[in-house]
Amino acid sequence: MASDAPLNAQVNAQANALAHENILEAASEWLKSGRRVALATVVSTWGSSPRPVGSQLAVDDKGAMIGSVSGGCIEGAVVQEALAAIEDGKPRVLDFGVTHEQAWAVGLACGGKVQVYVERME
């Protein structure tokens, strides 16, 4: 199975990048290199939601992301709030879901609800 070896290497590298464990480490490296960073964490979910409580997304001042707080449906809005938190230093709690007034714009396709806490790393 000559094809297995490169596949293995590739997938292991991907797994390292995907692992939840590495998001804070990556954020710490960003801070050390002088980038400003905010951390978003899923703190509550209701109904079906793509990522469980505790899922995290680190965002830098250029909008670069590592990790996730949803299947991609709310990341755009979370990044905007993260950039604002990097500027003003205030933590915020964001609610997303079908009852949210912006639901039609950034709602969850799955119909669930999710609450995300955004804080500046300092």
Partner: peptide, 15 residues
């Protein structure tokens, strides 16, 4: 063994 070659990357992806 051969099965391990499939199991290892799958487990790594699962964290």
């Amino acid at each position: 063994v051969h099965i391990a070659q499939a199991l290892v990357p799958m487990a790594a992806l699962a964290g």
